[in-house]
Amino acid sequence: MKKNEVPQDDANMLDGKFREPCYAVDESGRYTIVKSVGWDPKNIVMQQAWDHIQKRVQEVKKKVMQGKLSPLAYHMERHQMDVRLLASYMGFSRWKVKRHLKPGRFNKLDQEVMERYAKVLNVTIDELKRTD
């Protein structure tokens, strides 16, 4: 890649927080560093990953609304977690977390467990019980 070919396709993927250094060849053939704000192919696949996450979150949200899953499932999905990851953050076994994804079981959780879930998922207990 030549110095003047370093892409500058800004899709706000970096939140304007920094520019990425890229190694590119200058006029004399030597490598130098040029900063880039982004590149379209990369922006496209990043957007794809986020759309996919959003789609899954909406699917889970629907199931929560239908009473098939507890709101915990929604917050787990929102944080891109699966049962295994949430279980290891909580220090619980996987089957225990799985049970808490059922609405009936979730509603009976005691305060202390609720608090821990809320902390791991970065919400208040009140928010943990909702899906908005």
Partner: peptide
């Protein structure tokens, strides 16, 4: 898409690493 992300996301890279 995941292959391209592994290739091009910050701090990793197929092309970037070759350079």
């Amino acid at each position: 898409g995941q292959i391209i992300r592994a290739q091009e996301e910050i701090g990793t890279g197929g092309a970037g690493f070759r350079f």
